[in-house]
Simulated scan of single mutants.
Amino acid sequence: MSIADIKKTLEQKAARSIEAFKSDLQKIRTGRAHPGLLDQVQVEYYGAMVPISQVANVSLLDARTISVQPWEKGLGPKIEKAIRDSGLGLNPAAQGDLLRVPMPALTEERRKDLTKIVRSTGEDAKVAVRNLRRDANEQAKKLLKDKEITEDDERRSLDEVQKLTDRTIAEIDHLVQGKEAEILAV
């Protein structure tokens, strides 16, 4: 393993951390409806738990309403129950085969709670990036100990790792601020 390999691995893992964080942010709801909100909701389908998107069409009716159209007749009540029990605070209404999922307006208190959740999720993402930095630095120090690189190479490697970590954390902070602004917008 070389310094270039360490740096490349760190960049890839940092990019995956950012993508995972963005995915987590999408699950935190704002006042607007979006089909991705139901991605983590699982419904029983022939004895197996599967995401709603694999057993129904999930789309938007308007800015505040998600529609769920099951592919099979008997799935409507199961999907309705799964959405109710998901902990998202949603209350679907059946209209024949179609389920309408209206988004309730967020109260000021709930908005503040959601911003705390966003900050906490952002802090978890930063911890993950710092752990990646620690691992990369340990690998560089191991190369130095094994006399595969010089002290100057190790110092340069540590500096590059720190710069990449700083950039990644700044991006996470930017995403947190954007999501907070989105939540607090009435």
Rank of each mutant, 00 (worst) to 15 (best):
K141F: 04
V43P: 02
T30E: 04
D113F: 10
N91D: 15
L98A: 08
G47M: 13
V55H: 00
D152V: 04
P70C: 08
E180V: 03
N137P: 00
E108G: 11
P77F: 10
E182C: 04
T107C: 07
A140M: 04
I169V: 15
L132T: 03
K145C: 13
K22V: 12
R64F: 03
S120G: 11
L114Y: 14
E148R: 12
K145F: 13
R167I: 00
M1W: 13
K179N: 11
I3H: 00
D153P: 00
R130P: 02
N137G: 00
S59G: 03
G76F: 02
P70M: 08
R134C: 09
L175C: 14
R64S: 12
V55I: 12
R32L: 14
L75A: 06
A181E: 12
D24Y: 04
E72V: 11
E123A: 14
T150R: 00
E19D: 08
H34F: 05
R119V: 10
V55N: 05
E182S: 06
S86W: 04
R29A: 13
K13I: 01
V55P: 05
I28Y: 14
Q12R: 09
Q139V: 06
A82L: 10
L158K: 06
L25Y: 07
V161K: 08
Q139I: 01
L75C: 02
A14C: 09
K116W: 05
V50T: 14
L60Q: 11
G178Q: 15
T168P: 09
I149Y: 04
N131V: 04
D135P: 06
K27P: 01
L75N: 03
A94D: 05
E182P: 07
T65L: 01
A125I: 07
L175P: 11
V176H: 00
L143W: 12
E109Y: 10
E154Q: 13
R134I: 12
L75W: 01
K73M: 10
E80M: 14
I52T: 06
K112H: 15
V129Y: 00
N57R: 05
P92V: 10
I79G: 07
E151N: 06
L38N: 06
R156H: 13
R110L: 12
K112D: 14
G89S: 10
L88W: 00
L158P: 01
Y45E: 07
A93F: 09
A93G: 05
L132F: 11
E160W: 12
A48L: 08
E171C: 06
Q26A: 15
V101I: 12
K73A: 11
Q40Y: 05
T121H: 07
